[in-house]
Simulated assay, not measured.
Amino acid sequence: MKSNPARKELQASGEPSSTLTRLTAILLLIGTIAVPTLLILHDMLGIDEDSGALAFPAYQRHPISVFLTYYALMATGVLFVLLGPLVYRMYTHLQTPLRLLVLICMVVAGSTQMIAASRWLIVLPYFSHIYTNPQTDAATHAALDVAYQGTSYFLGLTIGEFFYNIFSGLWSVFLAVMLLRSSHRNVWFHWIGIIGGVGIMLGSFEQIFVNTAPGSIFLSLLTVGHVAWVIWLVGIAIALLVNKPSVLQREPQSMVQEPVDLSTERQ
């Protein structure tokens, strides 16, 4: 059985296979679209992160919607954890330490998102069940409210928003810079990724200055950063799906016959 010369050349050059490229592009497209969509659904559900007295009744009104939304949000965290090694492998031909930094930051960002979303699947239903029980007294209500606020601040605002935005912005900037250095076409497009990553990182400080004048500025930076981030990653995913690896666009040398010079006289 003869081996494919194009595949041999593809492996020798370090270029990613078409299967790896398509898989990475599809997962990247799903994750990029899912994150902002699920965050919008989170706001629509009205789960207050500062008050258990408001969050628990809201959960009782929409238990299935809350479960599905935050389970999907946790799944997107798993998705980005898996995307880290895929992106690392896909750009293996780029010998730069930025590739490892992208892997580390992407895995950490996905892990923080998983942990933060899990609180809605574990803590919220448990607290809500006790809180809405008619036999629960006022002291228990107050204790549950305090416990909910502490859990929300630690798992939600600290891990799920602050650290998630920091590491998401970092891997986005590292990936954009890596692609910017390695590409001579559409260089301007990767600047969108840098702007998006920086905006997300700066926007993470919105939690520190919440309910203050600087807080609104950081919130605006976070919004602009997420919009640029989505545009950039969707563009990358589409480009990976549409464009073929450069090696496959070239005709293998083993299949090209050299012309024979018939004008040379035989000795």
Rank of each mutant, 00 (worst) to 15 (best):
L38A: 04
G31N: 06
A138C: 06
I195L: 10
S3W: 06
A72Q: 11
S51P: 11
D43K: 15
L157D: 12
V198M: 04
P134C: 07
V81N: 15
S183D: 12
T158E: 07
M114V: 04
V87F: 10
S168Q: 00
P63F: 13
E206L: 12
L179Q: 14
W171T: 04
V107W: 00
G199A: 01
F56V: 08
A58L: 07
F127E: 03
T158I: 10
A72I: 09
N133H: 13
F127S: 05
L219A: 14
Y71V: 08
L103E: 02
M106K: 02
L124H: 04
E251F: 05
T37A: 15
R7G: 04
G199I: 00
L241I: 00
T223V: 14
H184S: 08
P259M: 13
T24E: 02
Q60E: 10
V247N: 01
L175E: 01
P36G: 07
V224M: 03
M74S: 08
V247F: 00
P134W: 14
N4A: 02
R22S: 07
A12G: 06
V35S: 11
G156Y: 03
I130Y: 15
L39Q: 15
M255V: 15
W188R: 04
L100V: 12
S216G: 13
E265C: 10
G169N: 00
H42D: 15
I195W: 06
L222N: 01
T37K: 06
L38S: 04
T212W: 14
A142N: 11
T32Y: 11
R181Q: 13
F162P: 02
I33H: 06
A25S: 06
L221S: 03
D261L: 08
E15K: 11
M106D: 01
L124K: 06
F162C: 03
R61P: 03
V177N: 09
S111P: 08
L28G: 09
I64F: 12
I104A: 03
S168L: 01
A176F: 12
T136S: 10
V198E: 02
D261N: 14
T37D: 07
T151Y: 09
I26E: 11
F80I: 06
A6D: 02
I231G: 01
M90G: 01
N4T: 02
A53H: 15
L98T: 14
V123W: 14
F218Q: 07
K244H: 11
N133F: 08
H62W: 12
L27N: 01
T92V: 07
V177K: 05
T32C: 15
L41E: 13
V102E: 05
G160K: 03
Q249L: 00
E206C: 09
S220G: 11
F80S: 03
A237D: 13
T37H: 08
